[in-house]
């Protein structure tokens, strides 16, 4: 593997891990506060899975980053994270959280399905394992989109508002990273444009069935090293104990 390909692979692995760790953290904030007990349980489960996936991606990246998963999650600042902005936004209401989860799950399903045939074997193996869990997340968030989209006038209005807010952010998922071309050429990673098409083919009809319409808005096309203020707050929460005694074993 040449140096640029290694760098590109590391960037992507860290980006995938960062998406998962930040989304997992946000999901876990619902534990104990969900609208029904069954959903406290479900979202806690999803949060654990996402954090578990982050662990897998960080570990795959470790030979290149030289840092273990906990150093990556707890000892980098906002400027060093490579997650998309969508996952760092505060949870909002249940509609916002479920819709974000849906848009992300659909992206992950499309991505993992393609990564299963990646020419980089560790990526293919991990993708297969992760996809088995993601199928359940995707089913769970898909049904919530339908329930809330078609539920009451209020739930529909909340979902549409969430979609108006989230849609431009969701499109950031498909912005290529600077070295992606090397990955695509090596058959390590799918072409982001194709990924977007595959995602839209799933998401658009499902939203339509749920009576929801994506806004005609310009995508948030920031690079993955650009963040909102919310990530700073999130990291302050997340890194509080780890950084209080940096050399400690927990």
């Amino acid at each position: 593997m040449n140096e640029q390909l290694q760098q590109a692979l590391m960037d992507r692995l860290v980006a995938m891990a960062d998406d998962e760790v930040i989304l997992g953290h946000r999901d876990s904030e619902w534990t104990g506060h969900a609208p029904i007990l069954e959903e406290d349980i479900a979202i806690a489960n999803i949060a654990q899975d996402e954090l578990g996936h982050a662990l897998i991606w960080y570990e795959l990246a470790e030979p290149y980053t030289g840092n273990d998963a906990d150093s990556m999650a707890f000892f980098r600042d906002a400027r060093q994270f490579r997650n998309v902005q969508m996952v760092e936004l505060p949870n909002g209401d249940w509609a916002f959280t479920m819709l974000r989860q849906y848009l992300f799950d659909a992206y992950e399903m499309a991505l993992l399905t393609r990564l299963m045939t990646s020419q980089y074997a560790p990526l293919a193996e991990a993708a297969e394992k992760i996809r088995r869990e993601e199928i359940y997340h995707f089913r769970h968030s898909s049904i919530w989109v339908e329930r809330l989209g078609l539920g009451t006038e209020e739930s529909h209005a909340r979902m549409q508002r969430a979609l108006d807010h989230l849609w431009p952010y969701a499109l950031q998922l498909f912005r290529p990273m600077p070295l992606d071309a090397h990955l695509v050429e090596a058959g390590f990673f799918p072409d982001p444009d194709q990924l977007q098409t595959a995602w839209q083919d799933v998401v658009l009809p499902h939203l339509k069935n749920a009576d929801l319409t994506p806004p005609d808005a310009e995508p948030i096309y920031a690079h993955r090293h650009h963040h909102t203020e919310h990530l700073v707050d999130l990291l302050a929460d997340m890194q509080l104990v780890a950084r209080s005694i940096p050399k400690a074993v927990w």
């Binding site: 489960n45 654990q48 906990d70 707890f74 780890a242 927990w250």
Partner: peptide, 28 residues
């Protein structure tokens, strides 16, 4: 649950979420 956001390692965070999830399950 109040300490889930502050758990100091990924493993501890997952374990604590699983624990609080179990409590929800026990309640149910």
């Amino acid at each position: 649950g109040a300490w889930i956001p502050h758990a100091p390692t990924l493993r501890r965070k997952m374990i604590l979420i699983a624990k609080v999830q179990d409590e929800g399950g026990h309640g149910q």
